[in-house]
Nucleic acid binder design. Structure first.
Lengths: 63, 63
DNA sequence: ACATTTTGTCAAGTATATTTTACAAATTTT
DNA sequence: AAAATTTGTAAAATATACTTGACAAAATGT
């Protein structure tokens, strides 16, 4: 299922998928796939995303 | 660095690495590697571990 | 309306998470 | 102290996260 919390947190910072990808050091497609859902990123990437968006793991990746 | 929060939470439930591995459906070595640190598990595995130990992502995998 | 940026998606390749088998060190049990 | 369980670790194989390049649809800006 889509990760709308991530999409929303990214929008709150006014960042494009490509900009967020650059901040955390992955490709744009990876960010897109995570938001799209049915994807299983590594915890280090999740942590990097959380820090870039000033959120915690529970806020963005806990159901 | 070692994940002592995970090690401690597992001990609190009196589970061996092998028992926890069975609960979350991975090998014992994977659990051992995560506790040892310098490892990068997937978010789905982290979530499964958290649920098995009645903890959240922030409690076990946030620094 | 046109131009630009952003997003969704696909296929083929590369990097790495995870498994399997195996053995020794350490810890716990009797 | 011996036996049994648990843990630490390693090498080779497999599964999958992530990349690169590319193109079209959708959204945004002028």
């Amino acid at each position: 299922m889509k990760n709308l919390k991530l999409k929303s947190a990214r929008a709150a910072k006014d960042l494009s998928q490509e900009q967020l990808a650059g901040l955390v050091g992955v490709s744009r497609q990876t960010i897109n796939a995570i938001e799209k859902g049915d994807y299983n990123p590594t915890i280090n990437l999740c942590i990097a995303i959380c820090k870039a968006l000033d959120r915690t793991l529970d806020e963005l990746f806990w159901e």
